[in-house]
Amino acid sequence: MRNGGDKPGGPKAGPGANWDRLGASWFIDKGVQVLVFVGGTSAIIFVVGIFVFITREGWPFIRDTLDFAEFFGSPRWNPTSDHNPTYGALALIVGTASVTGLAMLIAIPFSLGAAIYIAEFAQGRTREVLKVLVEMLAAIPSVVWGFIGLTVMNPLIIDMFNVPVGLTVLNSGLILGLMAAPIMTTIAEDALKAVPDGYREAAEAMGATKLQVVFKVVLPAAKNGLVAAVLLGVGRGFGETMAVLMASGHSVNLPTSVFDSVRALTATIAAELGETAHGSDHYRVLFTLGIFLFIVTFIINLLADIFVRGVRKKG
């Protein structure tokens, strides 16, 4: 950075002297640009890399052994059998879907209600404190949630409903709902905050009550963002492993009520992958489950993104 500082010689020498030289700031600038570019594009590389990896591990099984009708239609998951292994993932898919479904039934009203309260009704300190608390809730590790499911909810459910096991769809659905709600609340609140205040002012000036403003103006205007919040919650539910593994009972079962134990796709992979022989059919079918999960969550996230973009276009 010797920008003419040492050459007080006059207007001729000053600017002319540095024209052909690249200063340190130029290199710093370029360097940071490259760094930021690598950081930004690494996400793409990782996503593609992960997909390539799990596909490569799962593909031989999909090609040679997999029977789609069995995989999606049979609840018999018995990949470790010596003479007749079966690879029916239906019970696992239904397990994940039922837990996620129940979780969403709980999380959607809670998180939308919380988001509406924080964004539209709470004032000053209440709002700040609530926001911080919700974010703290989102930061609780999933194993802690699983622990609560195992040691608190389990005996509670056994007691309250007089059932033999408490590690059920109900238990894991509740836990998962509580886990997903903070994130959904935060995203939904952002969506509500993004609604221009002019809309609220216009409606209030016409005599709309606070409730009318929320339900007739703000919620419709934030609709896409709210859908995105719900979809991301669903994605979170689908992908959650540890808490579900601990709270669901982890038994292969087509549930007929919320008091049945189930096993989730993610939990299956987590519990079994360590015990398989590398390259075996069992190993590869777990990767096939992984591919399936990857595709489902990818689609959910993509949909969420499309909805959020819908908001931006209109704004």
Partner: peptide, 26 residues
């Protein structure tokens, strides 16, 4: 009060709903 006294703002602020619904809102 707000029914009797209507207000027009500096920046036009129609609601993000249809023209028809805007007129019918109040």
């Amino acid at each position: 009060v707000r029914k009797q006294v209507g207000m027009v703002f500096q920046r036009p602020n129609p609601l993000p709903i249809s023209i028809r619904d805007n007129v019918l809102f109040g």
